[in-house]
Design a protein around this nucleic acid. Structure first.
Lengths: 186, 186
DNA sequence: GTCTATATCTAGATAGAC
DNA sequence: GTCTATCTAGATATAGAC
């Protein structure tokens, strides 16, 4: 064949990585296959050598996003004690609010996932529960606290992104950080 | 003229009300003008007698949504003391999670608002701050608590909608309700 | 595997008849 | 004000050459 044996695999990988950022920034439904392919230097027709449909890409993309989030958030049994605190500071930052393309998938694609097929939501659920379990044990075996903290993070980011002024954006993020610190980390 | 003097105004009103539900359910970008017009018994071409563009509808729609939310959430100086508690129970319910078409605009259109033009975000900001101010005073003049509670509500709803099982959905909502009760309403 | 070309469809928006 | 018809642009997906 004219291409190395791992060429297809590598191209798919590049496409997936590239698409993650674009889709988190501009939305999935409103981004065309041509745009995603152009971003890795290819044309639209070649897309279908890698994914059977645009929806297959969405599934792969969401799954990859959640694996990535889990790697960053869940931590390991020997993560430092301030692991959660560090995650929270980073998550609830202006940098995160201003750069959806490198951030958490939930605030930016949550609504589109909610409208997706059940199979995708099953994957999402498993992943969410993994983070929840880990954080629950780190928050003194308090499952309620873990869901509450996760909800605050996602919601604060949604709100931080829909306001116009930097000032209000920072107020939302800082308030949420302080409230979590006081309530769950002291 | 062939139509009553208030015909245009009434049609616009019907269109706006009808579109609110459809767009919250299916997303704004992914819903066509024809679909929105058909829902009020008209054809696509007539849309432009009421709005200059699809984006103008989005602005009007978001503004109306926020007015509506404010009416329900902010309350008045003589609202009963349990006003906030009642709002929270209703917001963090399965019914709300399962029916975006009649619910809060932020969990379902938040990401699209985040990508919208500054003018829309300015309106959103003003409205968010109104709810925040009202809730802050109801939560013992604690601005941090108000932002934190609002964030939890929005985030919990996003998460509740992206999981597949009813069980997990209810777990997320109930945990968040309990956590808010314990932390902010006792 | 990727290209160009294309089929098919749907989108937002406009023009002119009624 | 609303209709039908249409323009233009973009979408997903496929076909066949290289």
């Amino acid at each position: 064949m004219r291409y190395a044996s791992n060429h297809k695999q590598e191209t798919r990988e590049k496409l997936l990585e590239s698409s993650r950022a674009i889709v988190k920034k501009d939305g999935f439904a409103s981004t065309g296959v041509d745009t995603l392919m152009a971003a890795v230097g290819l044309t639209g027709g070649a897309f279908y050598s890698h994914f059977g449909s645009k929806n297959e890409l969405f599934a792969a993309l969401v799954e990859r996003e959640l694996e990535n989030s889990n790697d960053m958030l869940a931590g390991t049994p020997d993560s430092p004690p301030d692991h959660v605190a560090k995650c929270l500071r980073s998550y609830l930052s202006s940098a995160h609010a201003l750069h959806p393309e490198t951030g958490c998938v939930l605030p930016t694609l949550g609504a589109e996932i909610a409208r997706a097929e059940p199979a995708i939501k099953t994957v999402v659920e498993r992943s969410l529960k993994k983070v929840h379990k880990s954080w629950s044990s780190r928050l003194g075996d308090d499952p309620d606290a873990a869901w509450a903290v996760m909800a605050q993070c996602v919601g604060a980011l949604v709100m931080a992104r829909i306001v116009e002024s930097d000032r209000t954006r920072q107020e939302i993020l800082a308030s949420t950080r302080r409230s979590i610190d006081k309530t769950h980390l002291s």
